[in-house]
Each structure stands twice: as C-alpha cells, then as structure tokens.
Computed example of a mutant assay.
Amino acid sequence: MNLLRKTKSWKTFFTVVHWTYRRSNSWVQLAGHEGNFRFSEAGHILKKFSVNESRCLQQLMGDVLRPYVPAYYGVVDKDSEQFIQMEDLLMGLSSPCIMDCKIGIRTYLEEEVTKSRQQLNLRKDLYQKMCKADPKAPNEEEHRRGGVTKLRYMQWRETMSSTASLGFRIEGITMENGTVHRDFKHTKTREQIIRTLIRFTDGCTETLEGYWFRLQAIKEALMQSQFFKSHELIGSSLLFIHEQKGRVNIWMIDFGKTTGLPEGQSLRHDLAWVEGNREDGYLLGLDNLLGLFSETMARQAALTPPQD
C-alpha cells in the first residue's frame, strides 16, 4: 500500500471540493463558508484569514504533526483581503474519493456555552430547525414558547449524529465520479458507519487497511505532540482521500476554533467533557474510528473467498 505522505493536494471538504472529471476541473460548492477559498498558484490554496488557524498552522510546521497537516506558506493579500496560503491537498489526484470527518465530542467552544447561558434569549429559527429534524425533540415548554436557546440547540445537535456518542461524525463524502453525499446528519450507529465506510471505499480491504495505518500513525504522532497536548481542538476535521491507483491519505485540517491553553496546562483528549475541563474528546473519536475501520476490514475479509 502506497501511503501518500507528501501528496500536494487539499481542500477543506465541507466548504469547497476540487475534483477532476472528464479531464476538466470543477468546483463543487457543498455547504456554508462560501467565499472562504480562492484560487492560487499551482499546489497552493488560499483560505480566508483566521488568527487562530494561521497561528496554529505556523506552530504545527515545527511540531511532530507536520507530516499530517497541510503545509503553511504564510499570509497573503488578495483583493484587499487577507488569506492563509497553504498546500492544496487535492492537486494532482485523478478523481479522488474524499470523506470529511468532524472529530471530537463537541463542536462548540466553552465560551459559547457561557455566552449562551448569559443570553438566554429564545431562538425561533433554531427551534424550527430542531422540529424539522425531529418534531419530538423540543420539550413541552419549548413547544409552548416556540423557541430554544442556542445552548440547548448546540447540545441537542451533537446527539443527533455520532459526535456525542463516538467522538466524530461524517460530514460529507465525494465519490470518484464527483457525486456528493451529505445525508449523514442521522448517521449515528456503528452499523450505519460501517456501511458508509464500505460504500466510501467500495469495500476495498487494501484501501481500508491504508486508512487504518494512517490513523494509527496520526495517533502515535499526537501522543508525542506538544501542540496537541497544549491545545483544545474544536471543530477540527480529518480529511480522508483515496483514488483508484491505490493511494491513500488522511490529513488533519480546520483549526479555526483551535485554542491554546494557559501556560502549564494540558489536555488528555480522551476524557468526557465536563464544563470547565476543556476536554475535546479528540482521541476518543480517533480510537472509535480505528475500531470501526478494523471492524469493517474484518467484515470484508470474511466475504472474500479463500484462495487455493
């Protein structure tokens, strides 16, 4: 299995995906964050400037995690705006399959919880979103008032997918032919995820194995990383990429909500979150991903007839 450790290709999946189809380049708008990305020179991509993300990427260039994040090339000005210039992780790949997994047991910051508690205004728009997904989700009082607080909505939202229970959720998938799948809001059980992994990899045990080894390598690097120990990673993703040639890779992306801890403090990343402990559950999600890839490989191996 050829693991792509230096592939010059990337794009945050759940914002914009760059794929090659019939030898013509296309941009597929997936959801949200429109306008966050711009074209750049070959091998690079521009992402709208974020102080947090820029600082994180700069620090990561000197950390043991450097082989697992897009290369950082500084900040550039374009059209009177500032952008982070980084490695385009999709360039050079032929019709890649891509999966974005949001990692961690929550996607909101502790300061958002505090702010929401201080401003207990009811949001009708969030109530309507909740009702659309599950009419039984709001309680009697919320139905009567026709609104929910942002805190209530944020915490409920994490229970709808596998975020709260498994420490990660699938955000979206782009298949080899460019077909985009985003219907994963209720993908929650291990069985549902295994079926999704089989569909994503076309059941190829070699591809599944490649991903497992890459996840294991990322975990080993995380355990040695000073950056990981001293940062709370919220809303970060793992970007899975493979193509039919057998090349497989996973990248750590999206550090806009990643924040450093006060000097002398550290996180374990494998504990449940209790307000105030800042634990993000990153390793809980990573371990569950490793286990699910192992289960998927075992299932596919059992389907393979023995060779003479």
Score class of each variant (00 low, 15 high):
R38M: 07
I193D: 04
R5E: 13
T189G: 02
P262D: 08
R117P: 03
T114V: 11
Q85R: 15
N288V: 07
A71V: 05
Q224E: 07
F200T: 04
I198G: 02
K132M: 15
D270I: 06
E81S: 07
Q128W: 13
V76E: 10
Q192F: 03
F14T: 03
A137D: 06
Y127G: 01
T196G: 14
E53M: 04
T207P: 05
Q307L: 11
M160D: 00
L290H: 12
P70L: 13
E279K: 10
L3C: 00
I98F: 15
I250G: 05
L284A: 09
F255K: 02
S161M: 08
L151D: 09
W156M: 12
G260K: 11
S237T: 12
R144L: 13
P306E: 04
S9I: 04
L286C: 08
A31Q: 14
D88N: 08
I241W: 02
L267P: 04
M1L: 12
F255H: 11
G178R: 06
Q29A: 12
D77F: 12
I105M: 08
F13C: 03
K11L: 15
V64R: 04
E232R: 06
Q58H: 09
K150T: 08
S266G: 14
I193F: 02
Y282P: 03
Y108R: 04
T201V: 04
I218F: 00
F13P: 10
I194G: 01
T149P: 09
L57I: 06
V16C: 06
